[in-house]
């Protein structure tokens, strides 16, 4: 049985070998980078690299459905969720290198090595045979075989998992919900506050009168200084690019203001 995704034949062998080795090294490097990177966003992106490599591996191993689910759900949804929360929490919150707990790094490294050794021993002792033949229960395609299994043998787990999903969604809503500690100000109250405050006019938008109109570019005040009010405080945690740099030579076809 051939499958469009599962490669077969001797040429396929070398391709597979090559694919494996490149992606394996890439994913290990990305994983190491993930745990060592200082900025959280870099960690998220490196994790995306690992996940995508894994998707290819799933495809190589005769699990195409899983491969796509990995890309769509895991990388596309879960990881993006991570990024959104990073935005909320603060991109600038970088970990300091200094370890506060004494001996944590050493013990973590030792335990990691020990775990590696032990699991290698497990692999060494376990009989890992070659890939077995696909049995007839699969049917013709991977997806329908999986569906068949889900809705007959594992239907109970399926139902429970759906209940779990609903619970998780509701739970997230509950947890992220903010209770109002003070009554919601009406529009009239907001307007009164605005008039009474120091700046009755709307806040300047970012990039106003600036050379660039990025979200993180502060607006310029009439005297040329930057207005901190124009940039979201979350973003303003980062050092802002200087306003003094001269305009670049724009490549042909682009207008000023495109980034």
């Amino acid at each position: 049985m051939t499958h469009p995704i599962i490669l077969a034949g001797p040429a396929a062998e070398t391709t597979r070998l090559l694919a494996y080795w490149i992606l394996a090294i890439a994913s290990v490097a990305a994983a190491l980078g993930m745990i060592l990177a200082r900025r959280a966003v870099h960690c998220a992106l490196l994790l995306a690299v690992v996940m995508l490599s894994l998707a290819v591996f799933y495809a190589m191993e005769g699990a195409p459905f899983l491969a796509f689910v990995q890309i769509i759900v895991y990388t596309g949804a879960v990881l993006m969720l991570f990024l959104f929360v990073l935005m909320i929490v603060g991109i600038s919150s970088a970990d300091s290198i200094i370890e506060t707990i004494r001996g944590q790094r050493m013990w973590a490294a030792l335990t990691g090595i020990a775990m590696l050794v032990l699991l290698s021993l497990v692999i060494g002792h376990a009989v890992i045979g070659p890939a077995g033949p696909s049995t007839a229960q699969f049917g013709n395609s991977n997806v329908s075989s999986l569906a068949h299994l889900i809705f007959t043998k594992y239907v109970f787990q399926f139902e429970i998992t759906s209940a779990l999903l609903i619970t998780a969604a509701v739970g997230a809503m509950v947890l992220a919900h903010r209770e109002r500690t003070s009554p919601k100000p009406t529009q009239r109250e907001l307007a009164e506050k605005r008039i009474a405050s120091a700046h009755p006019t709307p806040l300047p938008g970012p990039g106003t009168y600036a050379l660039h109109n990025a979200v993180d570019m502060p607006a310029l005040l009439p005297d040329g200084s930057q207005s901190e009010l124009s940039v979201s405080p979350v973003i303003s945690g980062r050092p802002l690019p200087s306003q003094e740099e001269p305009p670049r030579e724009l490549p042909a076809g682009q207008e000023a203001g495109d980034q």
Binding site: S27, V28, A31, L32, M34, I35, A40, C43, V50, F82, V85, L86, V89, S93, D95, S96, E99, T100, Q104, R105, W107, A108, A109, T111, G112, M115, L116, L119
Partner: peptide, 17 residues
Amino acid sequence: LFVIGAVGVLVRRNAIV
């Protein structure tokens, strides 16, 4: 990958990481 992930849990301070 598993071991790298485990060590990562131990050495990072940022909850999201």
